[in-house]
Design a protein around this nucleic acid. Structure first.
Length: 355
DNA sequence: TACGCGTGGTG
DNA sequence: TCACCAAGCGT
């Protein structure tokens, strides 16, 4: 390989040696810690995920301890982080590792992908960081860095283009230590070659960079796909019984906040009128037993309502998609709704109705 | 394969 | 203010 061929990779390695952040999952080869950090960091910034990582490691230092936990406790620790299927798969994953792999994570890139919640990226991360397997990671950072440096205009949102970037990443990885190169290229993307305008003035590879030379930093990478947002109006009834307990409902459908708890609600496509809200008031409330442990995980809106200690109807505007919720209520003490997540989108049309 | 899943930061 | 998007994955 000619020197010119390794300029990009060697520059990244040098940059990483000087600029890497000190993070708790770095400098370990424990696959459990690496796996946990990777799941938490999927589509999530370090600053947002870091406190969750610390709490999970403190509460569940080992595979065995996490595998023994109830799913509700795992969800409760995950509250506020979003993408709750990650928490359910996290739990299912350690249970599978415990039952089918003797509590030890399997080593191979292919074998790791058989575990729930572990796809190509996470498998590559674990295989390279923990087991030094020479397989490239391809995440949002890598896609951006490669697209900009090599001037690749293919849509990173199209699945068929993934192999283009994988092959290029593999070529750049070459025979460099995968556990270092993979961290380096991702860290470079997160810190230096950021989304939006990158720090080209201080960039060690700007000389060879297509985007920097052609001023295409904001045009690359190309991503056509747009996430479409449609408004959802959730009107909650905060219902209290004579013991001061509040009616809540577990969200079981495949929809946002699955597995978390909500107040009884009416969902509409537009802001409902008062008569509509009152007409839809649920008639058949009944009492159920709580999940074991007497503590439940709750969705973000509940925290907002409880924190203001209102007994009102609220209109919550949520920018997501899907179906409304039907099913049984249960009563819980407000003290049981512990360690609540932060509220999401709170609407500006809030109205209040005293019961 | 395309789409849905959360929350928070950014320009 | 708001569109974009962030260490992706499952279906």
């Amino acid at each position: 390989m000619h020197k010119q061929d390794t300029f990009f990779s060697e520059s990244l390695l040098n940059w990483y040696a000087e600029n890497q952040r000190d993070l708790p999952w770095r400098g370990t080869r424990d696959p459990y810690k690496i796996w946990l950090s990777e799941i938490i960091l999927q589509q999530t910034r370090v600053a947002q995920g870091l406190p969750y990582y610390e709490r999970f490691i403190e509460r569940f230092p080992t595979v065995k301890q996490l595998a023994k936990a109830e799913e509700q406790e795992v969800l409760r620790l995950w509250q506020g982080l979003g993408y709750y299927s990650r928490a359910r798969n996290l739990h299912a994953c350690v249970r599978k590792v415990e039952s089918e792999y003797g509590g030890i994570f399997p080593e191979g890139y292919a074998e790791l992908q058989k575990l729930p919640g572990i796809g190509k990226y996470t498998a590559a991360a674990i295989a390279s960081f923990a087991f030094h397997e020479s397989v490239p990671v391809v995440d949002g950072n890598v896609l951006r860095v490669l697209a900009r440096y090599f001037g690749i205009a293919q849509d990173i949102g199209e699945a068929k283009n993934w192999s283009v970037f994988f092959s290029l990443a593999q070529k750049q990885l070459g025979s460099f230590p995968p556990q270092i190169f993979n961290q380096a290229i991702m860290e470079f993307g997160a810190v230096q070659c950021k989304p939006g305008m990158p720090n080209c003035e201080t960039c060690p590879v700007r000389i060879g960079c297509y985007a920097a030379q052609e001023k295409q930093q904001l045009a690359l990478p190309v991503k056509v796909k747009k996430t479409k947002i449609r408004p959802r109006y959730f009107t909650y009834w905060l219902v209290q019984n004579q013991e001061g307990e509040v009616a809540v409902q577990e969200r079981k459908d495949t929809d946002i906040w699955k597995g978390l708890y909500h107040f009884p609600l009416l969902e509409t496509e537009s802001l409902p009128k008062e008569e509509e809200v009152l007409k839809a008031l649920p008639a058949g409330l009944f009492i159920q037993e709580l999940p074991s442990g007497g503590s439940v995980s709750v969705s973000p809106v509940i925290k907002h309502v409880l924190s203001h200690q209102h007994l009102f109807i609220r209109f919550i505007h949520v920018k997501e998609a899907s179906v409304s919720q039907k099913g049984p209520w249960r009563w819980v003490n407000t003290e049981q709704l512990q360690e609540l997540p932060k509220p999401i989108v709170i609407d500006k049309y809030l109205q209040e109705y005293l019961f």
